[in-house]
């Protein structure tokens, strides 16, 4: 969520229990402004926090002109000193998914090790010794933030427009979804590269507005029911929680352009989701 409206938005998503203490909020207000100036960001998003066993990570993201371009993520342990996260490339994602498991520790230099032994049957074929994959927690953090953004970042339909040049920017004339629309999952989109948009039938495609509907709607997600949409605060705020990444909360106040998402959780994907519905 935008760091400028953090105070206001944080209160709207606190229904799931986690917020920031006043001290952290105050610290963020100062440090994110400095961060924005130092890194020359267009705007700064407060992304959320990941709970570790010894300490918590606070994550911020900087946005440049194009909102869709991979954002730069930064982390902090005390809300004041920010460090840039390494980019999450394909190979990093693979390494992390193999080596890192269990809870975050809270120490960026903590090292996860995974030794892969050649399988019994292939012993004669592969003479190589054990392969050890080492990943430190900073890399894991980068990969986790990237994956969460890819899989469950949410925006309301119409909040961003794509120009003919392919530049994605905030839609200045976005006035919010109506109450009726806000109750439907198909009016909320994944804010990541579309995966199955092109697979839709022509009939469905005909109704789409190419400048607005360039993203995948949430309603197409598998398994069905991996999102929980509710109205909170006396039925006035639309709150969507991801059940795949427990801790991701999105809010939108209908009839206003206010929206945002935040992740506050332990940074683990809920792999048991199919059993739990």
């Amino acid at each position: 969520m935008d760091s400028n409206t953090l105070y206001y938005s944080l209160d709207l998503v606190s229904g799931s229990g986690l917020t920031l203490s006043n001290e952290q909020k105050a610290a963020l207000q100062t440090s994110l402004l400095i961060l924005r100036k130092n890194y020359k960001f267009n705007r700064v998003l407060f992304w959320g926090k990941i709970l570790g066993i010894k300490g918590d990570y606070f994550i911020a993201q900087g946005v440049s002109d194009d909102e869709m371009r991979p954002k730069k993520s930064l982390y902090s342990l005390n809300c004041v000193d920010w460090h840039l996260l390494p980019p999450a490339t394909e190979s990093v994602l693979v390494d992390v998914s193999v080596a890192a498991n269990g809870r975050f520790v809270g120490d960026p230099s903590h090292e996860y090790k995974h030794t892969e032994r050649p399988r019994q049957g292939e012993r004669d074929a592969a003479v190589e010794e054990e392969v050890t994959i080492k990943v430190n927690e900073e890399t894991r953090l980068a990969a986790t933030v990237h994956t969460i953004d890819e899989e469950v970042s949410v925006v309301p339909r119409g909040a961003f427009i794509k120009s003919p040049h392919g530049l994605v920017q905030t839609n200045r004339s976005f006035e919010g979804l109506s109450f009726l629309e806000a109750g439907k999952l198909r009016c909320f989109l994944h804010f990541a590269k579309p995966q199955n948009l092109k697979k839709n039938s022509i009939l469905e495609m005909a109704e789409l507005d190419p400048s607005i509907d360039f993203l995948d709607p949430l309603s197409e997600d598998i398994p069905k029911g991996s999102w929980s949409l509710q109205f909170e605060r006396g039925n006035t705020v639309c709150v969507i929680r991801s059940l795949l990444w427990l801790g991701l909360i999105f809010f939108h106040v209908p009839m206003t352009p206010q929206h945002g998402y935040i992740y506050m959780g332990d940074g683990l994907k809920n792999l048991e989701l199919p059993f739990m519905l």
Partner: peptide, 12 residues
């Protein structure tokens, strides 16, 4: 709880 970073929001 607010000091601990936990809670439902003040009005709630």
């Amino acid at each position: 709880l607010e000091q601990a970073g936990v809670g439902l929001g003040r009005e709630e």
